[in-house]
Amino acid sequence: MKVTIEENEETGKFTIKVKTEDGEEKTIEIPKENLEEILAKLPPNVEII
Protein backbone atom coordinates (compact mmCIF):
# COMPACT_ATOMS: atom_id res chain seq x y z
CA MET A 1 0.00 0.00 0.00
CA LYS A 2 1.30 3.46 -0.88
CA VAL A 3 0.17 6.70 0.72
CA THR A 4 0.89 10.12 -0.78
CA ILE A 5 0.41 13.16 1.46
CA GLU A 6 0.23 16.66 -0.01
CA GLU A 7 -0.36 19.92 1.86
CA ASN A 8 -2.83 22.41 0.40
CA GLU A 9 -1.48 25.74 1.65
CA GLU A 10 -4.62 27.63 0.55
CA THR A 11 -7.00 25.55 2.69
CA GLY A 12 -4.57 24.48 5.42
CA LYS A 13 -5.60 20.85 4.86
CA PHE A 14 -3.77 17.74 3.73
CA THR A 15 -4.80 15.55 0.82
CA ILE A 16 -4.09 11.88 1.43
CA LYS A 17 -4.07 9.55 -1.57
CA VAL A 18 -4.03 5.81 -0.89
CA LYS A 19 -3.20 3.19 -3.52
CA THR A 20 -3.82 -0.39 -2.41
CA GLU A 21 -1.99 -3.51 -3.58
CA ASP A 22 -4.86 -4.33 -5.96
CA GLY A 23 -4.61 -0.90 -7.64
CA GLU A 24 -7.62 0.73 -5.98
CA GLU A 25 -7.16 4.44 -5.27
CA LYS A 26 -8.89 6.57 -2.64
CA THR A 27 -8.41 10.23 -1.77
CA ILE A 28 -9.42 12.07 1.39
CA GLU A 29 -8.81 15.60 2.66
CA ILE A 30 -8.18 16.16 6.35
CA PRO A 31 -7.49 19.18 8.56
CA LYS A 32 -3.85 19.76 9.48
CA GLU A 33 -4.65 19.05 13.15
CA ASN A 34 -5.68 15.45 12.34
CA LEU A 35 -2.59 14.41 10.35
CA GLU A 36 -0.63 12.88 13.25
CA GLU A 37 -3.71 10.97 14.42
CA ILE A 38 -4.26 9.51 10.93
CA LEU A 39 -0.57 8.56 10.50
CA ALA A 40 -0.58 6.75 13.85
CA LYS A 41 -3.42 4.51 12.62
CA LEU A 42 -1.65 3.35 9.45
CA PRO A 43 -0.43 -0.25 9.38
CA PRO A 44 3.37 -0.81 9.46
CA ASN A 45 3.55 -2.05 5.84
CA VAL A 46 2.52 1.34 4.41
CA GLU A 47 4.97 3.25 2.20
CA ILE A 48 4.51 6.99 2.76
CA ILE A 49 5.48 9.17 -0.18
Score class of each variant (00 low, 15 high):
Lys13Leu: 08
Glu24Ile: 12
Asn34Pro: 01
Leu39Asp: 00
Ile49His: 07
Glu9Lys: 14
Lys13Met: 14
Pro44Gly: 08
Lys32Ala: 10
Glu47Gly: 04
Ile5Pro: 00
Phe14Thr: 15
Ile49Cys: 09
Glu7Tyr: 15
Glu21Lys: 10
Thr20Asn: 08
Lys17Asp: 04
Leu42Ser: 00
Glu36Val: 09
Lys2Gly: 04
Leu35Phe: 05
Ile16Cys: 07
Glu24Gln: 12
Thr15Trp: 06
Pro43His: 09
Ile16Lys: 00
Ile5Phe: 04
Glu21Gly: 10
Thr27Pro: 00
Ile30Asn: 00
Ile30Pro: 00
Glu47Val: 12
Leu42Tyr: 06
Val3Arg: 00
Lys17His: 13
Gly12Met: 01
Lys17Gln: 07
Ala40Pro: 02
Gly23His: 02
Asp22Tyr: 09
Pro44Lys: 10
Met1Thr: 09
Glu6Met: 11
Thr4Asp: 02
Asn45Phe: 09
Lys26Met: 14
Thr11Gln: 03
Ile28Pro: 00
Ile48Glu: 02
Leu39Lys: 02
Thr20His: 07
Glu9Tyr: 11
Asn8Phe: 02
Lys26His: 14
Asn34Phe: 14
Leu35Cys: 07
Pro44His: 12
Leu42Ile: 04
Lys17Pro: 01
Ile16Gly: 00
Glu24Asn: 09
Val46Ser: 06
Ile48Asp: 01
Glu21Pro: 12
Gly12Ile: 01
Leu39Ile: 06
Gly23Ala: 02
Ile16Ala: 00
Leu35Lys: 01
Glu37Trp: 07
Lys17Met: 10
Val3Leu: 04
Val3Cys: 11
Glu10Trp: 10
Lys2Ala: 05
Ile28Trp: 14
Ala40Lys: 11
Glu29Tyr: 09
Thr11Val: 02
Asn8Tyr: 02
Lys17Leu: 11
Phe14Trp: 07
Thr27Phe: 13
Thr4Ser: 07
Ile16Pro: 10
Pro43Leu: 10
Val18Ala: 01
Lys41Ala: 11
Asn34Tyr: 14
Leu39Ser: 00
Pro43Thr: 06
Leu42Cys: 07
Asn45Val: 04
Thr27Gln: 06
Lys32Cys: 12
Thr11Arg: 03
Lys41Ile: 08
Lys19Tyr: 14
Ile49Tyr: 04
Ile5Gly: 01
Leu42Arg: 01
Leu35Tyr: 04
Ala40Cys: 10
Asp22Ile: 04
Thr11His: 03
Lys17Trp: 10
Lys32Val: 07
Asp22Asn: 10
Glu21Phe: 08
Lys19Cys: 13
Glu37Ile: 08
Thr11Glu: 13
Lys32Ser: 08
Lys32Glu: 03
Asp22Val: 04
Asp22Trp: 09
Gly12Asn: 05
Pro43Cys: 14
Pro44Trp: 11
Met1Val: 11
Glu29Arg: 05
Thr20Trp: 15
Lys32Thr: 05
Ile38Asn: 02
Leu42Glu: 00
Gly23Asn: 03
Lys13Trp: 15
Glu36Trp: 15
Glu36Ser: 11
Asn8Pro: 01
Ile5Trp: 04
Glu24Leu: 10
Leu39Pro: 00
Glu25Val: 12
Gly12Thr: 02
Thr20Gln: 06
Glu10Ser: 09
Lys2Cys: 14
Thr4Arg: 05
Asn45Lys: 04
Leu35Arg: 01
Glu9His: 13
Glu29Gly: 02
Leu35Thr: 00
Glu33Thr: 06
Leu35Val: 04
Leu39Arg: 02
Ile28Leu: 07
Val46Gly: 03
Thr11Gly: 08
Asn8Thr: 03
Thr11Asn: 13
Asn34Met: 15
Val3Gln: 01
Glu9Trp: 12
Glu7Arg: 12
Asp22Gln: 07
Lys13Asp: 15
Ile38Thr: 08
Gly23Leu: 02
Pro31Phe: 13
Gly12Lys: 03
Lys32Leu: 09
Ile5Thr: 01
Val18Gly: 00
Glu37Tyr: 07
Lys17Arg: 08
Ile5Asp: 01
Glu36Leu: 13
Thr27Trp: 14
Val3Tyr: 04
Ile16Asn: 00
Lys19Phe: 14
Asn34Ile: 13
Asn45Gly: 13
Val46Thr: 11
Lys17Val: 14
Pro31His: 09
Asn8Glu: 03
Ile49Glu: 06
Ile38Met: 11
Ile38Val: 10
Lys13His: 13
Ile5Lys: 00
Glu9Ser: 12
Lys32Ile: 08
Pro43Gln: 06
Gly12Ala: 01
Lys19Glu: 11
Ile38Cys: 13
Glu10Cys: 14
Ile28Met: 10
Ile16Gln: 01
Glu7Gln: 09
Thr4His: 06
Glu29Ile: 14
Glu24Phe: 11
Glu9Thr: 14
Lys13Asn: 15
Lys41Thr: 12
Val46His: 05
Glu25Gln: 05
Pro43Phe: 15
Glu21Cys: 13
Ile48Phe: 10
Lys19Leu: 14
Glu29Gln: 07
Lys26Arg: 12
Met1Phe: 05
Glu6Tyr: 14
Gly23Ile: 01
Lys26Pro: 01
Phe14Arg: 14
Thr20Ala: 06
Ile49Asn: 05
Pro31Ile: 07
Glu25Thr: 10
Glu33Leu: 05
Glu9Asp: 09
Lys26Cys: 15
Glu47Ala: 07
Lys19Trp: 15
Lys32Met: 06
Ile16Phe: 02
Lys17Phe: 10
Met1Asn: 04
Ile5Met: 04
Pro44Ile: 07
Leu39Gln: 00
Leu42Pro: 00
Thr4Gln: 05
Ile48Leu: 06
Asn8Leu: 03
Glu29Phe: 08
Thr27Ser: 08
Glu10Asn: 10
Lys41His: 10
Asn8Ile: 04
Thr15His: 07
Ile16Leu: 04
Ile38Ala: 07
Thr15Pro: 13
Ile49Arg: 05
Asp22Ala: 07
Glu36Ile: 09
Thr15Leu: 12
Lys41Cys: 15
Lys13Cys: 15
Ala40Tyr: 01
Glu33Gln: 06
Glu37Met: 09
Glu25Ile: 13
Ala40Asp: 04
Thr4Asn: 03
Glu33His: 08
Thr27Ala: 05
Gly23Gln: 03
Lys2Gln: 12
Ala40Met: 07
Glu47Tyr: 03
Glu10Pro: 03
Ala40Gln: 07
Ile48Pro: 03
Glu7Trp: 15
Ile28Ala: 03
Gly23Met: 02
Glu7Cys: 15
Met1Trp: 06
Thr11Leu: 05
Pro43Lys: 06
Glu37Gly: 06
Glu7Ile: 14
Asn34Glu: 14
Glu47Ile: 14
Val46Tyr: 11
Val3Asn: 01
Ile38Arg: 01
Pro44Asp: 07
Gly12Pro: 13
Thr20Gly: 10
Lys41Val: 05
Glu37His: 07
Ile28Thr: 04
Val3Ile: 12
Lys41Gln: 13
Ile30Ala: 04
Lys26Tyr: 15
Val3Glu: 01
Asn8Arg: 02
Ala40Arg: 11
Ile49Trp: 02
Glu9Cys: 15
Lys2Glu: 05
Leu42Trp: 07
Glu21Ala: 13
Lys32Trp: 13
Ile30Ser: 03
Glu21Ser: 12
Thr27Gly: 02
Glu6Thr: 13
Asn45Met: 06
Thr11Pro: 02
Lys2His: 08
Gly12Trp: 02
Phe14Asp: 13
Ile30His: 01
Ile38Trp: 15
Ile16His: 00
Asp22Ser: 09
Glu36Pro: 09
